[in-house]
Simulated scan of single mutants.
Amino acid sequence: MSRHAMQRALLWALLLLFAAWFLTPLYVMLTTSLKDMDQVRAGSLLSLPTSPSLEAWARAWSSACTGTDCGGLKPFFMNSVLMVVPAVLVSTAIGSVNGYVLSKWRFRGSETMFALMLFGVFMPMQVVLLPMSQVLGWLGIASSIWGLILVHVVAGIPSTTLFFRNYYVGLPDELIKAAMLDGAGFWKIFTRIVLPLSTPILVVTLIWQFTNIWNDFLYGVVFSGADSKPVTVGLNNLANTSSSVKEYNVDMAAALIAALPTLFVYVVAGKYFVRGLTAGAVKG
C-alpha cells in the first residue's frame, strides 16, 4: 500500500471514529425510545429493540406528565412553533436592513454604531434578564408568547446584523451607485438588487436563528408563563417529574421530539448553511 493510500485510510478511520463518537448518543436515544421498559431494564444501552414500538413516542407527545399536567409535550411544542416562526423572520428581516444600511448607506457614526451592536453578540444572556423583565412588564406582555418573541428578536438582532453587514460589504458598490443613477431609491435598491443576491446569507441566518431560538432554555424558563412555556422547558419538566417508575424510553422519545425540528433543518439545509458561510457570512 502506498503512503498516500495509508494516509487516506488513516484519515477515513479517524473520521469514522469521530462520527461514531458523536452519533452514539443519538443511536442510544433512538433505540431506547423504541423499547418497552422491560427490555430497557434487561438489555444494554446499545442493544437493538426486539419489538420496536412507538408507544413511548405517543406517551411523550400526548400523555406524559410535566409536573402536575399530564398532557405531554404537544402544547409546549406548539408554543415553540408560535414563538420561533415570527421571531426568526422578524430578527432576520431587521438584521438584513441593518446590514444593508451599515454597509452600503454609511453615515457619520455608523462604524461606531456597528461596534456597539457587536457587544450584543458577546454579551452573556444573564445580563439582560432583569432589565428585559422590566420592559416586558411595562409593555404588558410578560409571561406570554409575544414577550418571548420580543426577547428573541432583540437578542438576535446583533448576530443577524453582523452576518448581513459582513456579507453586503462584499457586494460591489457600483451596483448601488448605478441603481441610484437610474433613479432607484433606498427600498427599491434593497428589494430589487440586494435581496436577490442575499440567498446564501439568508439561509445561514435563518438556520442560525431557528436553532438558537428553538434550543433556548434560559429565556424560555424566565420569561414564559404557565401557558407559554416552550418545548425545552416542557422537556425539562418531563425529565424531572417524579413518579413511581422512571420511564427512560418516554424521556428519550421526548428528547428526540424536541430535537426533531433542528435535526430536520440541518439534514435538509445543512449543505446550504456551509455554502452560505463560505460565501462570506463570517468574513470581514
Rank of each mutant, 00 (worst) to 15 (best):
Y168H: 06
T205E: 01
E247W: 00
Q134R: 13
F163M: 04
A20S: 07
V128M: 10
P25F: 08
T278Q: 13
W208L: 14
N166Y: 04
A269W: 13
T191D: 05
Y167C: 08
S63C: 03
L26F: 15
F190H: 09
Q209E: 15
A142L: 12
V128G: 07
A56D: 08
T241A: 04
A254F: 02
L15R: 01
D182L: 13
W214Y: 13
P200K: 04
S133E: 01
M113K: 00
L34H: 04
S47I: 01
L15V: 13
T278S: 12
G140A: 14
D173G: 14
A60M: 06
G220V: 13
A142N: 11
N98Y: 10
C70D: 10
F76E: 07
F22D: 05
V153F: 08
P158S: 00
R165T: 00
V127P: 06
G120S: 11
L181T: 14
L277V: 15
P196Y: 12
W138E: 02
L118W: 05
V245D: 07
V267F: 13
Y168C: 08
T205D: 07
G137F: 11
T232S: 14
F190I: 01
P131T: 02
T241G: 02
S62Y: 02
L73D: 03
V84I: 03
N249L: 14
V81H: 05
T32K: 09
K104L: 10
L195W: 07
R165L: 01
A179P: 03
G280Y: 03
Q126D: 08
T205F: 10
S33Y: 14
T232A: 07
S143H: 09
A142W: 02
L11D: 06
W187G: 04
A13H: 01
T32N: 09
I94W: 00
P124Y: 06
F186I: 11
M117C: 03
L23N: 10
S33Q: 08
L136R: 03
M252Y: 08
S96N: 02
V250T: 08
A155C: 02
S244L: 08
R106Y: 00
G185Y: 01
S133H: 03
V153P: 04
S228I: 05
M113V: 12
T112P: 06
A56S: 15
L14E: 01
I149N: 03
G147E: 00
R275L: 06
M117S: 07
